[in-house]
Design a binder for these strands. Structure first.
Lengths: 205, 205, 205, 205
DNA sequence: TATGAATGAGAATTCATTCAT
DNA sequence: TATGAATGAATTCTCATTCAT
């Protein structure tokens, strides 16, 4: 087993960072970015206020780190889901189900995620490129899958980017609704509806 | 000519309110809710800071009023568009085109609108019911049209609410993209794509 | 009587500024720049903390304004003293006496003055040019007087700048001593000593 | 060789203290007392922050120790210079030259020295008596020399204390100027000027 | 002895809201 | 009705000092 060059300090530091981000995620979700105070986050983490500044340079830094952390998890999980599914139809279903499931399990993160990417439009410059890329990466995963299917003639010759975006947005809306209302329907049923809609459209015949 | 019960005072007051809301919309769009100050709004309106409090009880009140004002305009315009179009296909096209057009013309309002309804999820309780109702009303307009078409057997028997929501969300995403990137494609082309997608799906045949 | 273009607002504002500076001078003198807090200054002025920021942009701004205010007074008073005195001998005496007298009357200002120009050396860049110029202006007043006397052959051909600086520094030291110890000797006697020393030196004959 | 009662521990401890003070002197000179942090000093010394507290009780303690250390060096060097010079004229010259030379060689210390004794006036109580005594000791050295010369009738019957103070202050001002401007003139020339001025005054004949 | 992670008191600054004019 | 000067609660961030290892 190789010595990875990580000292005990590094591990401790990483754990502390994770603790802070987990606590911060909850606080940001509950109160929103502005209303969340460093005191709140410190209390939620169970450390002193000054300690936060040993690990992050500012409140904004904590926020972005928490956002990126969650986003990376979403991307990883959806990418895996897409990779596993054999056909495009299955890929779309997997994408929807996996995301719905993830946010059902991480409701507090969704509040941050949605609030922030609602604001991307309002203030496009305020997110670091790495975070933006993670966000857009989700659409690209879908896009590639659609493009491949189209090139193989398995679907109509639609614009893969736009189709991917449509699926992405419907999924987003679905998740939002499930958070507001209780998740009335099973994720499977919701996913099935979206796949059906995207696949066949609503036209008669 | 009937005496409407409105004195000259009332009219003046209404005009003042509108001035404030128009100015506030620009300020909120430019700086976001938190960063916008009452001084900014007063300066943009061309009145004293104290005057704002003669017409609105708080900064939040101004914000909500500006949001509602814009939202009402969107609802009116989409409702009219839906009413005018004869078939469901035309209604969907009209819905998409009208909304895209409206926000192309009111880019600053979109920043508020989008930021706020990105946050509906995060903080569902922070919006007054009237505003929520306006927002959801847009979906219901679509929903009714779909339901009617379904009942008449003109489309497949899909869930009207979910289908309406899907269209609503795709449109929302489209508008967001157009604000970020320059509106590269014509609104017509974008609308046509969505109608086509929703209508026929992506499946071969 | 001409309308000077000053509204009542301007006058009020000026009065408020002066109140703040007077209060701040005392606070800074008592506690030093760092230890003085905005709360202290607000309390000493008798206004709210926020009010200070209506008139000055920062604590540093208040400090510099208080410094400049006092410095300008010193410069004016010494310039007048030099102008009035007929001979160089009288000018030197006037310079010393006037400054000693001024700082006897404004002990708190001296604490700021001395502390700050002790620090000029340590951090030369931290004072705005206008303040530096006021400070150095005092030496130049003396220098011109000495130069004139030298050119007229009334004193030995000494370097006027260095001689002025010497007088300036001795005076400074004298004032410092008087603030530390009680002003044991009369200002006149101290002034007489300096004039005598500078004039005749200490050599026998 | 006598056992001085100093263990190896003591020696080590003394060395460590000296290392800390030397490092601290540089830090305080560069950033000033307030802006200098214990982290800065620890890093400059090359030890951990906690270690500083093994040798000094507080930041202020380190500062005062660094000040005293430098001050003692100045006093020793000027005392030696005064002792060596045969006549008062030579003593004054030696005093000026030695101090100018010392601070040319220890520019960073001068920043501390000057800043602090600029503040003696402002906050007389904040320096421990030992440090004050060292500072004033410099004047007393000069004073004794002048008193002796006066008692032997070699100079005019001036007040030795005041004359010493005058020389002391002029020297101080000279050193300050040399630190601000580049040391344009040779120390010798500056010293010669001061001796000449103090000795003969500026009067014609 | 040496360390540096943790702490939390403390300070500057902002800004929504009030209210005397 | 209109104003804007005044207010002070609230927030972020700093850093000297402590103490467990």
């Amino acid at each position: 087993m190789p010595w990875q060059g990580r000292t005990k300090q590094d591990v401790l530091s990483e754990v502390r960072c994770a603790e802070i981000l987990d606590a911060a995620r909850g606080v940001f979700a509950r109160k929103g970015y502005q209303a969340a105070t460093m005191d709140d986050i410190a209390a939620a983490t169970g450390v002193g206020k000054g300690t936060l500044y040993l690990y992050y340079r500012s409140k904004r830094d904590i926020y972005l780190a928490a956002l990126e952390r969650g986003l990376r998890a979403v991307c990883d999980i959806t990418a895996a889901a897409l990779d596993t599914a054999p056909t495009l139809e299955e890929k779309i279903r997997a994408f929807v189900l996996t995301k719905v499931q993830f946010f059902d399990d991480h409701r507090d993160f969704y509040r941050i995620y949605h609030a922030e990417f609602g604001n991307v439009v309002a203030h496009p410059s305020c997110l670091p490129p790495s975070v933006k890329q993670l966000y857009l990466g989700q659409v690209q995963q879908l896009e590639h899958a659609i493009e491949a299917a189209r090139d193989e003639g398995r679907i109509r010759p639609v614009d893969p980017g736009k189709a991917a975006f449509a699926i992405f947005e419907i999924t987003r809306g679905l998740i939002a609704r499930r958070l507001l209302a209780d998740p009335s329907l099973s994720a499977e049923a919701e996913g099935a509806f979206i796949v059906d809609l995207i696949w066949k459209g609503i036209a008669n015949r």
